[in-house]
Design a protein around this nucleic acid. Structure first.
Length: 582
DNA sequence: GCCGTTTTCGGCCCGACTGTTTTCAGTCG
């Protein structure tokens, strides 16, 4: 998919136009288009011209530019702008605190090409005498460069959410806060996040600000105002805290949860309806009479919209859906009846079957599937046919003693480099559930990986494809795969795609999930638990599913055990019939 | 550059903090 490449180019065009001091609305148009193309749940190349122009923020001109890129691999306007900009100027924009105006000034007057030269120029005192630049600005540029070098990339939500919760706990105990909540992209459960946004109410905002900048995690204070402060933690993560009045909390929570695009669209609607929305509330003009703000619901109600859950707020059609009363009834953690991807000591898990059962019951589940690795994964003590049969007997005995809870006999069978499965069909056929996944050959060309996954989908015993793209956030990119092709085939046979809830996987991701749902592919949400506490990762999986507009009925492990088994059997017989008739 | 239950032209979300300024531009979210 070329979506992200095109989005990146549009964003760069926006930056280049900004440096030329172009019309800000034109710049915004490029940014908006970039966002919407990046978030598209379909390959832009597969869209007709009409469909392309129907994408919000894409008109005739930008549709033509998308086409141009798809046909030639470049956009002339982009090349032109790049050629006209002084070398290294774009790089300067990456320094936090350095915007287009100052970057342009530094590039023009000092001819610095890139960040290293800028740093040298500051240290050599070459900035003194430039208009609007004093000692403080020089210091801030150096700090910004240091921040940039330390890395400001997005981090997996699983690495940041625990820190956010810890900060909230500390603020509760050490400052006079009343309400306090994490907002921003964490509240929307984006799979990666850049910073932590926290919102609070208090009768003494100054005391809250003071306590915040003195948190033990604080490494540097970026801003310390009366109601808003920002710090960088020892881990290099920026945390913003904002304090508002109690009767503005809802409006502020809505505002700081974002996304930016979602909010812009809401405010545009507000303006058309004679309203004004800001972080303090909803106001009716003229006279600015406040008509709401204490609750987040106030904002949506004022705009005559159904309440939109945070996970959907990406300006990806949710506002239109809310208008037309067709918002999805999103799946919740409470809907999940069992976990269908769990490892035990038999392969590389940490616990025996009894412990796993206890932990599953503790979470209110009605069933779990034991899906240990297969022999091809030697490092994981994968099971061969004989050990798997042994484990199946153990599970059968365990089930005899259990009531109201079922252990499904399963496996996470390895899809080998040549596309064959790691265990014979005769053995697989005796299992309740067969989860297939790729653990090797990540660098293979797209055709080969796609062929492997298609073979697994078509195998009469396979019911689920686990972590279908193989990505590990911050560590390994998804392998090259024609996911759309795999999804279509999965839909044909009723094979489920897994939403792997392990926080570094979240695979399928939100966009893939929405695509899968579009094709009618059944989904399962599973944790891939190796250690008992990892059962709790289900919350991440459910949240990414919600970001993919998933409803309870789309998810197989919301079914009762009996219904689930029926569905799994139906999938198998459909494939067998197909095979027999072929 | 996009877009329309006021509009095919004339709008386009809104506010906090900082630093360099004496009332505001730049940056950020």
């Amino acid at each position: 998919m070329k979506n992200q490449q095109i989005a990146d180019i549009f964003n760069e065009i926006a930056e280049l136009l900004e440096l030329k001091n172009e019309n800000v609305f034109r710049i915004r148009a490029y940014r908006r288009a970039a966002q919407n193309i990046g978030d598209l749940s379909k390959d832009v190349a597969s869209l007709s011209y009409e469909e392309l122009e129907a994408v919000p923020g894409i008109g005739k001109d930008l549709a033509a530019k998308v086409r141009e890129f798809l046909e030639t691999g470049r956009i002339a306007k982009h090349e032109e702008l790049k050629a006209a900009a002084p070398g290294g100027l774009l790089e300067l924009l990456r320094v936090p605190g350095l915007g287009p105006k100052k970057a342009k000034l530094l590039s023009d007057k000092l001819k610095v090409k890139g960040i290293d030269e800028l740093e040298a120029a500051v240290r050599a005192g070459r900035l003194s005498g430039l208009p609007g630049i004093q000692k403080r600005t020089e210091e801030n540029i150096l700090k910004g460069i240091e921040l940039l070098k330390r890395g400001t990339e997005r981090r997996p939500i699983g690495r940041v959410l625990p820190l956010a919760e810890e900060i909230v706990r500390r603020m509760r105990s050490s400052a006079p806060v009343d309400q306090i909540e994490v907002a921003g992209s964490i509240r929307r459960w984006k799979d990666t996040v850049k910073d932590i946004d926290i919102l609070a109410t208090s009768r003494d905002p100054a005391a809250v600000m003071a306590a915040f900048v003195k948190l033990p995690q604080t490494n540097r204070v970026l801003a310390h105002g009366e109601t808003k402060s920002s710090v960088i933690t020892d881990d290099g993560i920026q945390v913003d805290l904002r304090v508002v009045d109690k009767d503005s909390f809802g409006a502020a929570l809505q505002y700081f949860t974002g996304s930016k695009q979602h909010n812009i669209k809401l405010r545009e609607r507000a303006v058309r309806a004679g309203l004004k929305i800001n972080e303090y509330g909803v106001f009716r003009e003229p006279g600015e009479k406040k008509i709401g703000g204490a609750k987040e619901e106030d904002v949506y109600r004022a705009l005559k919209l159904a309440f939109i859950p945070p996970e959907l707020r990406e300006d990806a059609g949710e506002i239109e859906a809310a208008l037309e009363g067709r918002l999805p009834d999103l799946v919740t953690l409470a809907d999940i009846k069992g976990d269908l991807h769990v490892h035990t000591k038999w392969s590389d898990g940490s616990h025996d079957l009894d412990t796993i059962v206890q932990e599953g019951r503790k979470r209110g589940y009605r069933y779990i599937a034991v899906t240990d690795h297969t022999k091809g994964l030697g490092v994981a003590h994968g099971l061969d046919e004989q050990r798997l049969r042994e484990q199946m007997r153990l599970i059968a005995r365990a089930n005899e003693k259990l009531s109201g809870f079922t252990v499904l006999a399963g496996t996470e069978v390895d899809i080998r480099a040549d596309g064959r499965l790691d265990l014979a069909d005769e053995v697989l056929a005796g299992l309740d559930i067969v989860v297939a996944s790729i653990h090797s050959g990540f660098k293979q060309p797209q055709e080969q990986i796609t062929r492997r996954l298609l073979a697994a989908v078509r195998n009469p015993c396979v019911s689920v494809i686990a972590h279908p793209t193989g990505r590990l956030l911050g560590e390994r990119d998804a392998y090259a795969v024609d996911l759309e092709g795999v999804l279509k085939e999965a839909a044909k046979y009723g094979v489920a795609m897994e939403i792997n809830a392990y926080p570094l996987r979240l695979d399928l991701n939100d966009l893939h999930i929405r695509m899968a749902k579009g094709y009618g592919v059944p989904l399962v949400i599973s944790t891939d638990t190796h250690v008992a506490n990892q059962f709790d990762y289900m919350a991440y999986g459910v949240s990414v599913a919600r970001r993919g507009w998933v409803e309870k009925r789309d998810v197989l492990n919301t079914l009762s055990c009996e219904q689930l088994i029926k569905r799994l059997k139906a999938c198998r017989s459909r494939k067998k019939r197909e095979k027999a008739s072929a």
